[in-house]
Amino acid sequence: MIFLLGILWTFFKVGAFTFGGGYAMIPLIHAEAVEKARWLTTQEFLDAIAVSQVSPGPFAILATFIGFRAGGIPGAVMATLGIFLPSLVAGWGILRLQHRFKDNPVVAAVWAGMRAAVVGLLLGAVVRLGASSLHGAPAFAVAAGAFAVALLRLPPLAVLGAAAAAGLVMARL
């Protein structure tokens, strides 16, 4: 039981100190789970990253894999709870605060600035993600196709499915 609570606490700390995307967690989780707790080796940790990358859903699901290696199914449950608990706590806190500031003009001005930054962050993510994943003309074609199809408001699953099929075809060539 103490062992399981240790898993919960470890991943809660990682979640609480993560802002932004799940990839920011990698060094933190490595320090806690591999170096400190020794739940898995560095090679297994790299495998865990690979599995989390091919899984749908948030990359932070990495915690589930490591929790499983550390303590079976109960360990996986505790690690998953721990890593996502900060989101639940913070989201709840924000809900309480929001009502108070709803009609404040200063807050509205701050939101206007932050909203514009979101558009910039999305574009920046396209550049960063593109630099690491768009190698060669076929990848660019898939990205351009997905962009056009997404703008047409076709079902996103059709976009992802077509991309996966394109990948299979490329694998055969």
Binding site: V142, A143, A163
Partner: peptide, 27 residues
């Protein structure tokens, strides 16, 4: 690996579409 590479490329395109349709309204 190929399938996930292609899906990754599609996500780049979809993200650009999100930026365009959100940005069109916000900016």
């Amino acid at each position: 690996r190929q399938v996930f590479g292609a899906v990754g490329a599609a996500v780049v395109g979809m993200f650009l579409a999100v930026a365009v349709s959100i940005g069109r309204v916000i900016v």
